[in-house]
Design a protein around this nucleic acid. Structure first.
Lengths: 216, 216
DNA sequence: CGGACCATCGGGGTCGACCCTGATCCTCCC
DNA sequence: GGGAGGATCAGGGTCGACCCCGATGGTCCG
């Protein structure tokens, strides 16, 4: 028999962590070993660094930046991430996979299924809830258009994205300037770059563009 | 000592139910007695009819129609409902309260707090998470303003409403003029009237105003 | 008829949105 | 050390958004 999979559980709901761990100990006895748990991004990063687990069970929505932030800061070559979320929203799934997760299951999963998913992720497979599998494939099939869009968004610098978000919400240049502690001229420069990079021509189009992609 | 509060737990996530029950047994020993659990609307209605609990801990999002459906079909004079949800979205909270729930707490709640909330709901109090309390009051206070807003809309003439709709969608004055076969100056006049009558100050606010009321 | 209301348009003005050019400073990297 | 790219800002300009004042013609109504 192989050694048990070493796991860290990350979720901001104490009761949910408790339930997950209880299930893992019941259904995954001998197969899964829970090393630690964490309730927010900082705790999670610390726990990953300390234990170097095989698999991190990661909630997508977390105080302190979300699961993606954990994966960004908690780099560890031997550690794989399995997202465990209530949400099956497109942006959550895609964002989490892009962030480096090897799987994404919803919280409707049962204990034995979860143990199996953990085992497979530890072995290097990708795992998705049945309802998500078709969706993920669709997303990749439709990635031509999506890719074009997201490449545009990726081309924006961090500062440009901040300005973009505020403008799309209807802020005047003056208000954006005050909010970000920069001059109006700088806001104009960033906006000019944003519009050029996204191939748009006005703040109105930008508002539509952003709301279409749920970036607000 | 009073008799324990008799509770049914309804949530479609088995692991979450398990966590909740573990917490209730730990933090609410002697105070709370869990009679049954249910994973969907039908099970919940059956469980309520069979046990006639004092309090039903009810997840808002459920397969089979949602928590509201449970309250509609699971009428029992001595039973009170406490919603327990991940969502603090306005429509969920308002909808659930309208459906008859006596309280609404988010899943970030701790075990002891949950026991206390259950106790208070059983005693007839209304309970809301701190973050939601102010929100609920605002919603009720806001019903006055909503009525006033609709009177505002009635004050617009037919032509003004046409112009308003196009502007709210991001049309430039020039485009509105072409669309309606009138001059830019006339569009400006109508817009001026619209903004004055609705007590707004810019096309951006108008866009928000209109989309808030789903006039697009 | 005369007043109220609406739709239509104009002149003329302020201010914000957006563009172009050009500049400084800083960091990263070859 | 120099080049690339990002963040910051300025001058100067066009055009759209919005306002104030004023005007005409039409309808409805007392």
């Amino acid at each position: 028999m192989t050694s048990p999979v070493r796991v860290v559980v990350v979720d901001d709901h104490a009761m949910f962590r408790r339930g997950v761990i209880a299930e893992l100990e019941a259904a995954g006895a001998g197969e899964v070993e829970v090393l630690a748990q964490a309730a927010d991004v900082d705790e999670a990063v610390t726990a990953v660094a300390a234990h170097r687990p095989d698999v991190v069970l990661l909630d997508v929505h977390l105080p302190g930046g979300g699961g993606v932030e954990v994966m960004r800061r908690g780099q560890s070559p031997e550690t794989r991430y399995l997202a465990l979320s209530v949400s099956d929203a497109a942006e959550d799934v895609i964002g989490t996979i892009r962030g480096g997760a090897r799987g994404y299951v919803t919280k409707t999963i049962t204990g034995p299924e979860l143990v199996s998913a953990i085992r497979r992720v530890a072995d290097g497979d990708a795992v998705f809830s049945p309802r998500l599998a078709g969706f993920v494939l669709d997303a990749f099939a439709g990635s031509i258009e999506v890719a074009a869009v997201d490449e545009d968004l990726d081309r924006l610098t961090e500062r440009e994205r901040e300005v973009m978000r505020l403008i799309a919400r209807g802020y005047a240049y003056k208000e954006v300037a005050k909010e970000l502690f920069i001059s109006i001229k700088t806001v104009e420069t960033h906006m000019s770059s944003v519009l050029r990079k996204l191939q748009l021509s006005s703040r109105h189009e930008l508002s539509r563009w952003a709301s279409d992609r749920r970036l607000l």
